[in-house]
Design a protein around this nucleic acid. Structure first.
Lengths: 342, 342
DNA sequence: CTTTAGCACTCAACTTAAGAGAGTGCTAAA
DNA sequence: TTTAGCACTCTCTTAAGTTGAGTGCTAAAG
């Protein structure tokens, strides 16, 4: 089904490997010299011509070497890629880093630092999505009166994400009444995630709190609004790293990417896919015009087996897929363990 | 004292104006044609030679026009610059924007949007510093127990900044005791800013809460840590705008700036100067190597006449000082009014 | 004494041409 | 089926003109 014999696969593997390292089109001579293919340049040339016809390789111009196409990378990632492992140094660095992170109690701090370590270790740009409110379960809720007219809703969730929101209070409402509402909500929402709230639930809430429907609506609004992509808690690490990639030497490309980085909602949409576990999206697979020459590797992180957020690495399609995959898996794993503690 | 006669000033003004617009060295011919100086190119040439000797102008190479030096810009900003005014369109846009902002109760949202509008209106990069905790006064504090071991401190300040922090609880401590501590702190801290806390205050607190010194220490730590630059709530708007400036066509310069943008602490340090009101820092006046070719215009915003944060615009030294100054003043004013409402 | 026209000179930026170098496809022999 | 050889292609680099904007200096005019 692959349609590629072993020799073609070995050659494709060599081309991808070399191009990832050098960012230069790879010629038949280079391959026959530096890789143990035991073939002459001429033979490799023939095979490469085939690989081009099959759509795995392409030439920037007639008399240049070959570079992988998107399909070429896809085949590499699916079939050829060997697994990398962390260096001892990296391992040590990560261990130390996460020991320090453990002392932090605030998830946002943790996420921010995760973005940083992810970008510094991969030398690409990292995108990390904090635990989404709609995927988190309620632990408890409090209402703190600020002045006669307003109160602060504090929502504590099991993912450690703490959400504040100021709401307007109707005039005639004393603290005791407030507390009753909160007690009621705590009892009925505790342990539930937003997504698990059925319309039956909501009907019941509306019925029971009929007298205080205005406050309820404001709180439900708060939940709604945070569960939409509107709330963009994406953290970007090492944005400047993209400048090191020769494929982004063009101002326009950088401009497009940086502009994308400023559009939190679109990033959330991109990261918050339903794909569980590890995902590698190459070039146009990202469905974003700005990212046609980029690849994005993402992994979910979990709380009690439930995916609550995403970490990701963004690079050129000529990305070190093997190494990045290893790093991202390792960091997602460590982040999991950290989130369980919150 | 200025050492510049009127004619030299008019010529310098024309050079700066032209160079700000075109980013090209300005020649004597251009000046005599496009500006009403009523002088021949030759005369202007003589004057420009003088201005160069005096350090206000410089030549990129022998046979090019002149461009302003840092000293030239400084003189322009201090003495020559005429005041710009907003277009009706801009005025309208701002009014509409801030009416919408008014509905938001969270200061961080407001600040984030301010950064956005500031960059989109100036077409430069904006840097906005949220209200600093140490400059805010306490409104109230709450302790919400999370589980047996931890509690959430919620700090509500008069600048609308709401600070959350999880602290460790000593085991033997019931909710009633907690509430007593909180009540005590509320009574003693309410209305005070961190900077106003004298060591006498602290001694008294420590004495009165001797039995619960551990919790007090944690809370004081929280205050300390947020008051140091450690807490970096800088919002950057339109970072990609720097790419539009021809002076940053060089990858290295962009890289340096983007890297700087990732270092929140340094940005806070830069923005949080003691200069009150409007400040214009040109080139090396910024004391940051990365910003030797940049100018930064900042303005404080206030709550009850007390400066609590900073908004700023970053551009090349060849920046539209007049226009940006007008925009930044206008936005700072509107932000003031908004913050008063929180 | 100040201003200006004229002129020679300078230097970056653009254009063109020539070569070098890396790589290919094809052919024919092993 | 594999490989050596060779003509061919195309980018990239370098060098040499060429252009044009702008200057400084000089001498004459106001």
């Amino acid at each position: 089904m692959t349609g590629l014999n072993v020799r073609k696969q070995r050659i494709l593997h060599a081309v991808v490997t070399d191009y990832i390292q050098t960012a230069e089109p790879v010629g038949s001579r280079t391959l026959s010299r530096h890789y143990q293919l035991d073939l002459s340049a001429a033979t490799i040339r023939n095979e490469m011509a085939d690989l081009e016809e099959l759509g795995f390789l392409t030439q920037p111009h007639t008399s240049a070497g070959r570079i992988p196409t998107q399909q070429g990378y896809r085949f590499y990632v699916d079939t050829l890629m060997d697994t990398a492992s962390l260096t001892q140094q990296e391992e040590k660095y990560l261990a130390k880093f996460f020991t320090q992170l453990q002392k932090m109690q605030e998830i946002d701090e943790i996420i921010k630092h995760t973005a940083k370590v992810l970008s510094s270790l991969t030398r690409y740009t990292s995108l990390v999505l904090g635990p989404q409110l709609r995927k988190s379960a309620f632990k408890q809720m409090r209402l703190i009166p600020i002045d006669g007219e307003r109160a602060l809703v504090v929502l504590i969730t099991d993912t450690g994400y703490i959400k504040n929101k100021v709401i307007q209070l109707p005039k005639a409402l004393n603290e005791k009444e407030l507390n009753e509402i909160v007690a009621y909500l705590n009892k009925n929402l505790s342990g539930k995630t937003i997504t698990s709230l059925t319309s039956a639930h909501l009907r019941k809430l509306r019925h029971d709190l009929y007298a205080r429907i205005d406050i309820l609506e404001q709180i439900l609004n708060l939940l709604e609004e945070s569960s939409a992509a509107g709330e963009n808690r994406v953290f970007i690490g090492g944005a400047s790293n993209i400048l090191d990639q020769p494929e982004f030497r063009d101002m326009n490309k950088i401009k497009h990417l940086l502009t994308l980085f400023e559009q939190g909602e679109r990033l959330v949409l991109m990261l918050d896919t339903n794909v569980d576990g590890l995902s590698i999206r190459i070039g146009t697979e990202n469905n974003l015009a700005e990212m046609n020459e980029c690849s994005l590797i993402t992994a979910s992180y979990y709380l009690h087996e439930r995916p609550v957020g995403t970490i990701g690495v963004l690079g050129p399609t000529r990305m070190e897929y093997a190494r990045v995959t290893t790093v991202i898996k390792e960091i997602a794993g460590r982040l999991n363990r950290l989130v369980e503690l919150l």
